[in-house]
């Protein structure tokens, strides 16, 4: 009888204990991630003295993502032009097409889609690179050469991502507006002047463009931070690295979308 009761209690408490365990694990991970961020930021001074390290990382994150970001931006802009035209022409407001395309791009799609693309293109590469460096003991090797791997390897990558993200997002939005222009004005015959005129009248530099840049800066921090942490925290085996890479992309995507909601509510939800 007593055994049965105990078994029942265990059955009830077990899931609770497991929940508590995973909660604690998540908290511990969060703590490690923040410590890592502190370490990364601690290398800022060193990085300023060796800007060459940064150059290579802007190349890795920024230049290598230009093609995918540009092409995606153009297509997203074209789709916005097409869809916007159908909806707006029902209300006789197709002159507002430019506003719709530009507002969607500058406020939301530019920063968010760019962040998602960078997470997939550059973030996963960062995680894999750091994870492999850990698995092949290159990070320990640096440490044994009295070189701080966080400052030497992670800090330049972090700032490379931070610098590249807003520029890529601006590129995405600009190319997207051109894509919308191409479809709206070029193919569907919206008035050229109205397209840009309305756009300029309704899109505010500080409200829309600057807020978009702030968003993409935040996303730049989040995406590179998650990618670097996952790589640095990966189990140093090939399986661990591949799992970390997947996790980096999934976590960054979720974080970007969730943070985007919060930022949008703060910035535009008056």
């Amino acid at each position: 009888m007593a055994n049965k009761a105990r078994a029942l209690m265990d059955g009830l408490l077990d899931p609770l204990a497991r929940l508590g365990h995973s909660g604690l694990k998540a908290l511990a991970g969060l703590g490690r991630a923040h410590l890592l961020l502190l370490g990364i930021l601690g290398g800022t001074g060193e990085l300023l003295r060796r800007p060459r390290l940064l150059l290579a990382q802007v190349f890795n994150v920024g230049v290598l993502s230009v093609l995918i970001v540009g092409v995606s931006g153009f297509f997203v802009g074209m789709v916005l032009g097409l869809q916007g035209y159908y909806v707006l022409s029902q209300f006789g407001a197709k002159e507002s097409l430019g506003v719709m395309v530009a507002a969607s791009l500058v406020r939301e799609l530019g920063p968010v889609v760019t962040a998602l693309l960078v997470a997939g293109r550059a973030g996963s590469a960062l995680t894999a690179e750091i994870g492999l460096m850990k698995a092949t003991e290159q990070l320990s090797g640096l440490e044994m050469m009295a070189v701080d791997p966080v400052r030497r390897i992670l800090t330049p990558r972090f700032f490379g991502g931070l610098i590249s993200m807003p520029l890529l997002a601006a590129l995405f939005s600009a190319v997207g507006v051109l894509g919308g222009y191409f479809v709206g004005v070029g193919l569907l015959g919206v008035d050229d002047g109205a397209f840009f005129g309305q756009m300029q009248a309704k899109i505010d530099f500080r409200e829309d463009v600057v807020n978009g840049v702030i968003k993409s800066l935040v996303f730049g921090v989040v995406v590179t931070w998650i990618a670097l942490f996952q790589g640095y925290d990966a189990t140093p085996t090939s399986e661990g690295v591949s799992r970390a890479t997947t996790r980096a992309v999934v976590h960054s995507a979720l974080a970007v979308l969730a943070i985007d909601f919060v930022l949008t509510a703060l910035m535009f939800g008056k």
């Binding site: 003991e137 090797g141 640096l142 701080d148």
Partner: peptide
Amino acid sequence: GRSALYQLRRRMGMLFQSGALLT
């Protein structure tokens, strides 16, 4: 501390199983 440890490590070498060369 960190910097003292790094000073000490300059006087140590370590040979890793994998070599740990920067690829």
